[in-house]
Amino acid sequence: MIITIGGLAGTGTSTVASILSQNMGIPYLSAGDIFRQMAAEKGMDVLDFSKFAEGNTDIDREIDQRQAQAARESEDLIVEGRLSAYFVEAPLKTWLTAPLDVRSVRISHREDKPVELVREEILTREKSEAKRYQEIHNLDIGDMEVYHLIINTERFDAPGVAQIIEKAVEVI
């Protein structure tokens, strides 16, 4: 089965995808992994490649294409990335959400930064990404109609969210 997992920063997409992969015995591919692979292919470290990618919309398109290609070539795959549901054919497209304050605290702990700084970084990043997604793909990241399952991760830990997704898979 192909499953996509998307969500904004701090919602737990990578953690949930990893747990789900282990629980279900299905490989997992993240947009971040593809980005790192592309950096290596160019002989660049991730920071240099990030700067290179800022003004190069072909990088975003290539990440989307590689995710879609991997899913087409797989019978079972969990694909994690903000836009995965838009480019990957999947019987279960999942979006994880959580309030901004919750996400800010999670990232603050993970990155050992002040919560208020993280909150501002999240807002800046999300505004920039929304604009970029609109310009590159004509997509509104806030449009949830593409998703089959939307989970607010505020009250559930990552293993619990993975269990919810597993239950959804059982009834498809």
Rank of each mutant, 00 (worst) to 15 (best):
R110S: 12
G142D: 09
R61K: 15
D112C: 07
V161W: 05
A98G: 11
S128A: 14
K42P: 03
R125M: 11
I141E: 06
G43A: 01
G81D: 12
L117A: 05
L123S: 13
Q65K: 14
G55E: 11
E170Y: 06
H109K: 15
L139W: 00
I26A: 09
G32E: 09
K131P: 00
G7K: 04
A71I: 07
I63D: 04
I122Q: 07
I2Y: 05
S104P: 00
I3F: 08
I26V: 15
H148D: 15
D76P: 00
I122N: 06
A40K: 12
Q37C: 02
H137E: 06
L96V: 03
V46K: 10
I26P: 05
E126K: 05
V171L: 07
K42R: 14
Y147F: 15
E75P: 01
N23R: 13
R125I: 06
E116N: 09
D112I: 06
V118E: 02
E121P: 03
M38V: 01
H137F: 15
I172A: 10
P99E: 13
F49C: 07
L47D: 14
D157G: 01
A70Q: 10
Y147C: 13
S74N: 14
Q37D: 13
E75A: 07
E73M: 13
I3R: 09
M144E: 11
A17M: 09
D112H: 13
L8C: 03
M1K: 08
V161Y: 07
G25E: 11
S108K: 03
S128Q: 13
G10M: 10
G160D: 05
L20P: 12
I150H: 03
D140Q: 06
E154W: 03
M24F: 04
K131A: 12
Q37V: 02
I5K: 08
E120M: 06
G142P: 00
D64H: 02
Q37S: 11
L123F: 00
Q65V: 01
T15R: 10
R61W: 00
D76V: 00
G12P: 08
